[in-house]
């Protein structure tokens, strides 16, 4: 049996993921997070907070909430249920940092926690910055 024949057998017996169902959960849960952030932001604005400060404060609250829930051990069960709806927003970024920090705290402050905290989030940072840089160049070229 060659490798491609085997690939077909594997395909035959391997279950497909419920992509549509997962996307729906992600859509709803992502939407709820969006709604929640918009409400927090609106609350700040209605209390006469400046809009840039209101944005930062909303983000800080979301980061704090997801880090706290990660530390208390609930967040991973939420993610398993709601999938990318809570990984993609900033909640997921905070979650990756906190979970790496907890995981590596016993391996030393420098060699463990410090070295590993950006292991998952590093890609988000790097490629976020690279794409921001490219988009900025495109913007400059187009707008002069």
């Amino acid at each position: 049996m060659n490798k491609s024949e085997y690939k077909n057998i594997v395909k035959k017996y391997t279950p497909n993921e419920d992509k549509l169902k997962n996307a729906f959960y992600a859509f709803v849960s992502g939407g709820i997070i969006g709604l929640l952030s918009a409400s927090i932001y609106a609350l700040f604005i209605s209390n006469d907070v400046e809009s840039t400060i209101a944005t930062s404060c909303t983000l800080v609250i979301l980061i704090l909430a997801s880090s706290l829930l990660t530390g208390l051990g609930f967040f991973d069960t939420f993610v398993e249920k709601f999938k990318c709806g809570i990984i993609i927003p900033i909640t997921g970024f905070a979650h990756s940092l906190t979970s790496e920090a907890i995981d590596n705290k016993n391996d030393g402050m420098i060699t463990g926690l410090g070295a590993s905290i950006f292991k998952l989030a590093g890609s988000v940072l790097l490629y976020g910055m690279v794409s921001a840089f490219i988009l900025a160049i495109i913007k400059v070229i187009m707008n002069g």
């Binding site: 279950p15 993921e17 990660t70 967040f75 069960t77 993610v79 398993e80 979970s99 907890i102």
Partner: peptide, 17 residues
């Protein structure tokens, strides 16, 4: 989990296989 996959508290969705 720590060695082969993700941090313990990281909720990576698990696939059926």
């Amino acid at each position: 989990e720590r060695q082969f996959r993700y941090p313990i508290e990281y909720g990576a969705p698990r696939v059926k296989r």
